[in-house]
Design a protein around this nucleic acid. Structure first.
Lengths: 370, 370
DNA sequence: AATTAGCACTCGGTATTGTAGAGTGCTAAT
DNA sequence: ATTAGCACTCTACAATACCGAGTGCTAATT
């Protein structure tokens, strides 16, 4: 075997071995399990070289090697093969999808939970953000003078409802009138365009009872604004507590506090691209200090639609990328297929694509060959 | 001071000191800070006695004493004084209450979060269980053929809504008819009585389109059943990670896994009594192995109503009971007062009571006097 | 030039030992 | 009934020694 190719194989061996054992990998272990027929001294020379070029790292003089972030990245971009999911994993994912149907928002939750369960990492997902969705219909239901329910029916059968409790009673006629106006003003409008200005515009349409109307409208506008917030689902956080990298309580707490903060997790999703396919960010690529030694795997479900959302995994950088990418690709493909059956694709044509993954190539291929 | 009284004071001192330091309390520390003028040898003799009667425990020969569960219980029942909350704590609680108003379900969440923040323990609450609530009004709103929204308006202005996505379309007339029937059948009925039998009864009222009606009705019944589930809110779990008793990751994970399981936490609430006032359960009194070294403080908000719910705290047995009971009593009193202003008490007369606490007296008073 | 056997070296982890000090129980005196 | 005094126990911590895994380097081999 030529030296360049061998170095690749060594990097690959170190990454895979380290993923499974969480212990620094020595030259002997590689000879034993990955590259029989080569002397450990050769491996050592190559490893020293890989350390010089920053693919591997030695925690201390008499220890084996551990992949660096660059090492993981190279593994992902050039060395890894996607693993086709095991039959039972496919079945579990299929079942999760079916359990939620036809309410696919529930499907997302089921699938996220299953993903956490299958991988042993933390799984997270975000409901589609409705900002760019058009309102098809809006209803204000008056239960009694003090209690209203606002229902917004948007693109892709997205339905949001919100209970509004008033401090002063509203009569049926007025409520009916407001409901009418809302529909006339907001139908076919994108949800993100509903804001303080809409409030002012609406106010002009009424002349009687300005204080009451103002209060009601403010509550309605606020409710609609809240409806565009994405909901974050998080499962399997405690899986991370068993990873050796997070086994001390300080680190575990830090990680937990981050994940427990919905707004921070939302920002995670923001960082991801708009395109479909599985994206992987390693360590500092995520850009969040608390996740320095984590990897983030994210994919967009329904990537062709305005209502697409995200689903993903957080685990240690020492993540089983091969298995995880396989699972995610499989999942996304089937999610799209299933959801597409039930949802009225009324404004966008949905083109089913294969689950091709996207990795950012940060390292030139020749560097590792040289 | 007579010996019996002194023993009480010693128990009290050990509990209070241990609560603040989390370290076994020695005789010298007690002389220094609690019972000046008595020799440490005297304290030692009394402590030995308190250990024989199982109020204190010595981790090892040359260590100070730690309260046993019985010791904490005696402290709570006979020795402790409720602490009036600090002014700033009162203000924080008041603010939390106001932030949620007039939507008092939100108030409960705000208050729970504040409680976690103020105490440094985990705070938890349960939304009122609606099983015993009467339905005032029920609405089935048809957005389009495939999408319905079910709104249930129950006692005490409780409103629940649920989006139903159908697999086969329903026409407007039929939806209207179902909505009508629902109201006629279910109005003034307790939510817990809606079940499989109601389904059968409803089915008899329709003759056309049995398959579609059956599907729709099943979904509605299921939705109503789900509405009676209590929602659990949990804040400040990570506070527990900094307690020395949960600082090893194994224990922290065990605790977290328990709290993360909503159904398990629901069972916690079940264990609590129906009456108002602050209840405290220590260690094995909770009856849950995972919480052996925890204490649970629970109180019922709106105890006079059918829609009462629970709010409480989980912390180490070494909990600042004096402060916590004070906070809880204060909170409950003000919660009831505030909520009572906004809610139509249409079926129950609400009598405001003082925030008297209830402790189960498990130990006879004379035992410690002897 | 590439590979390898051999060997001295490094260093973390574990076990061992020693020590300081906190806290006790007991006894005899008050 | 209380207390001073003292011998005793036990943990926590630091210092030390030692084992073994794994390395880098050198010289021999292909």
């Amino acid at each position: 075997m030529n030296p360049a190719e061998r170095k690749k194989q060594i990097l690959r061996a170190v990454v895979e071995e380290y993923i499974h054992t969480a212990e620094p990998v020595g030259s002997a272990a590689i000879v034993r399990q990955y590259l029989t027929g080569v002397s450990s001294a050769t491996i050592r020379n190559d490893m020293a070289e890989l350390e010089r070029t920053d693919y591997l790292f030695q925690p201390h003089t008499s220890a084996g090697r551990v992949p660096t972030q660059k090492g993981y990245r190279a593994y992902l971009d050039w060395l890894m093969e996607r693993q086709r999911p095991k039959a039972e994993d496919m079945i579990e994912l299929q079942n999760a999808i079916l359990r939620g149907m036809p309410h696919w928002e529930k499907t997302i939750r089921e699938v996220t939970e299953t993903l956490a369960h299958l991988t042993g990492y933390a799984a997270l997902s975000a409901s589609p953000r409705l900002s760019k969705s058009k309102i098809k219909q809006i209803r204000l239901i008056r239960l009694d003078g003090m209690n209203l329910v606002l229902i917004v029916f948007a693109d892709h059968d997205m339905v949001k409802h919100h209970h509004i409790r008033l401090e002063f009673p509203i009569d049926a006629a007025l409520a009916e009138q407001v409901s009418h106006m809302l529909n006339r003003e907001f139908a076919n409008m994108r949800m993100e365009y509903i804001d303080e200005q809409s409030f002012v515009r609406m106010m002009c349409l009424f002349d009687a009872n300005p204080e009451l109307i103002a209060k009601v409208l403010r509550l309605i506008i606020k409710a609609i604004e809240e409806m565009t917030d994405v909901t974050v689902y998080l499962y399997g956080v405690s899986n991370l507590f068993t990873c050796p990298e997070f086994c001390d309580i300080e680190r575990a707490k830090e990680l937990y506090d981050f994940l427990d903060d919905t707004s921070k997790v939302q920002r995670l999703f923001m960082a991801a691209g708009e395109h479909g396919g599985t994206q992987i960010m390693i360590g500092s690529e995520i850009g969040i200090p608390e996740l320095e030694d984590c990897s983030l795997v994210l994919a967009r479900y329904l990537p062709e639609r305005t209502v697409s959302g995200m689903i993903g995994l957080i685990g240690p950088s020492r993540m089983d990328y091969s298995r995880v990418t396989g699972l995610m690709d499989y999942l996304i493909k089937h999610l799209d297929r299933m959801i597409c059956k039930t949802v009225n694709a009324d404004d966008n044509q949905l083109i089913l694509r294969g689950g091709g993954s996207f990795f950012r190539p940060l390292i030139r291929s020749d560097e590792i060959d040289g």
